[in-house]
Simulated assay, not measured.
Amino acid sequence: MRSILLSSAFLAAIATGAAAQDTPYSPGDVVNFLVDSADLGLNRGICIGTAQECAPPEPQGMDMLINFELDSADLTAEARENLAVFAEALKDERLNKARFVVEGHTDARGVEGYNFGLSEERAASVKTYLSELGVSEARLTAVGLGESEPRTGDALDPENRRVELRIDLQ
């Protein structure tokens, strides 16, 4: 499965590599990022050149702050605000067919089995909130990954307590 990451720190750089912004992204920013980064069947063309010249660019992540407090699957106010922007973006007709995998993560505190369950609860919490905002549950698949994929080199870093949204390009 190919996917494009909308990861978990909304105020960092978008695909352009721009510096962190003081204001959150708009729904239009999210739509443009997804349309520009993903082959959603909107653009077709022929490339004449080497395989390297014609290869599509590697998609960059778009950071959205969907972090959690220690031992919690409750959405923070900031996470709710950012998910509301994401839900609004999904109303754009260019994204009608887009499906997303909602990946829950934890830091390495606690035992592995507990962390796996907590990561599932976090993913479910985001999926539920997005569905409350009008996103069809059929467009969202929630999975828990526990502590298996830390975002930083420090497995105990609070930044690892997050949910990441990936557009499913199957």
Rank of each mutant, 00 (worst) to 15 (best):
E58C: 02
S7Q: 10
F68E: 03
A77P: 06
E112G: 00
I66H: 05
E103H: 10
N67G: 15
Q21P: 06
F100A: 00
K91R: 15
N82A: 04
L75T: 05
D107E: 01
P27Q: 10
L83W: 02
A98F: 06
T23A: 14
A89T: 12
K91G: 09
V111F: 02
S37A: 12
T106A: 00
P24V: 08
I48G: 03
I48H: 12
E93A: 07
E88Y: 00
L90G: 00
G49T: 04
N96L: 09
A18M: 14
S119Y: 09
S72A: 04
E53G: 13
I14V: 07
S72G: 03
Q21V: 05
G28V: 08
T16L: 05
K127I: 03
V30G: 08
V30S: 12
D39Y: 08
E53H: 11
G61N: 15
A9L: 13
F68Y: 10
V126Q: 09
E88T: 07
V30W: 03
S8V: 05
G61I: 01
F100G: 04
D22M: 14
I46K: 09
N67W: 08
L90P: 01
S119E: 06
G113E: 03
L118T: 01
T128V: 07
S119H: 09
E88G: 01
P24A: 02
G61P: 15
S125C: 09
R94T: 07
P24M: 07
F86T: 02
G49F: 02
D92C: 02
A13T: 09
D39F: 10
D71M: 00
L42E: 14
G110S: 00
E112V: 02
E78H: 12
A51D: 15
Q21I: 03
E93N: 01
T16Q: 04
A73C: 03
S8N: 12
L42N: 13
Q60K: 15
Q52G: 10
V85R: 06
A89C: 07
D74M: 03
A19Y: 09
T128P: 04
A51W: 08
M64L: 15
D29T: 12
H105S: 05
F116P: 00
R122E: 12
R44I: 10
Y25I: 05
F33N: 13
C47I: 14
S26V: 09
K97G: 09
R44L: 11
N82Q: 13
G41E: 08
K127G: 07
V30A: 04
F116M: 08
S7R: 10
A123N: 11
A89R: 07
E120W: 07
A55H: 12
F68W: 02
T106S: 01
S72Q: 04
K91M: 02
A84R: 06
N115V: 01
L75A: 04
K127Y: 10
A73G: 01
N96Q: 14
A13M: 04
E93Q: 06
I48Q: 14
A38K: 10
V101F: 13
R80P: 03
D29V: 04
S7M: 11
P56A: 11
G45S: 05
